[in-house]
Write a protein that binds this DNA or RNA. Structure first.
Lengths: 147, 147
DNA sequence: TTACAACTTACAGTTAACTGTAAGTCAATA
DNA sequence: TATTGACTTACAGTTAACTGTAAGTTGTAA
């Protein structure tokens, strides 16, 4: 099954602008061309593009992803470099998740805060509430900013 | 305790450029000024700035945060709007965490893939390995892209 | 074989969130 | 009170990741 750039874009939920941009930046150097120069996408290209999306979601820039693609194109001599890259990225994503979990705790606190404020018609009620009067799951949360 | 903008920047791990930018964008309208127009940061301002950082970490743009600050400045008549904002944001952050967890699974798969490839000196070993020969925790992972 | 939609490249424009510079003002200290 | 380092605003520049346009080419269908 062969795809033009706009068919590939629909399939990948991207625009053809974005796919051309990725090509220009060297992220998909293996995508073939017709005799006339028209890009031809194949099934296996979509696996790559999905991986690129994954690396982007993991916080890598286009430049960093290009470095990985370059290593891949270079072959087995870069296996160690690629391995190390994935281990470093694993650590960073784990940290990102931890950090988001803390952010979520603050947001959850604010949900309680505003639930209580809305019920009372004023923020002074949750603001002045003693910790022992707050629900257990709220008392445990860090990041209590009363605004 | 009073702080100049550069002292506040050190304390908040930001630059004074960034603090002035936030002020320009209306994110910290309550920060006071000296008679001569110099910004004076107080302890309570830091709580706000920490909340702004939290909302940023939660994926809100400067514009969206400004909307929240405007509601806050308007007083108790906007309690419901602020409550709804935090509930919506809670949902989005939970989705973000879920999505990152999936990304992490793919990265973990690649860690195994490259560990195996480095040990063998070639990617063809992990690529051709039958699922039943892979470790349990790897077999369970989705997002297996063999590159 | 011609029409024409979809493709190509080159390059300019957009957006968000800063980041830096210039010209001038403020405030602490010698 | 004069110096000088930090502050002020206004505005221009930067970066990343697209996004859009213009001019020209390709490929399919009549």
């Amino acid at each position: 099954m062969l795809y033009t750039i706009s068919e590939a874009a629909v399939k990948m939920q991207l625009t053809s602008y974005t796919l051309r941009y990725y090509d220009r930046e060297g992220l998909i150097p293996f995508v073939e061309r017709s005799a006339g120069g028209v890009r031809i996408f194949k099934e296996k290209d979509f696996g790559w593009i999905r991986l690129i999306e994954c690396l982007k979601a993991a916080g890598m820039s286009i430049k960093e992803i290009k470095q990985f693609v370059d290593w891949y194109m270079e072959g087995d001599s870069t296996l160690q470099l690629r391995r190390d890259m994935f281990y470093e990225r694993k650590k960073l994503v784990e940290e990102q998740i931890e950090s988001l979990q803390k952010t979520l705790n603050t947001i959850k606190y604010k949900c309680w805060f505003y639930d209580t404020a809305v019920a009372a018609g004023t923020t002074s009620v949750p603001k002045n509430m003693k910790p022992e009067d707050r629900p257990d799951e709220i008392r445990e949360l860090k990041g209590k900013i009363d605004l």
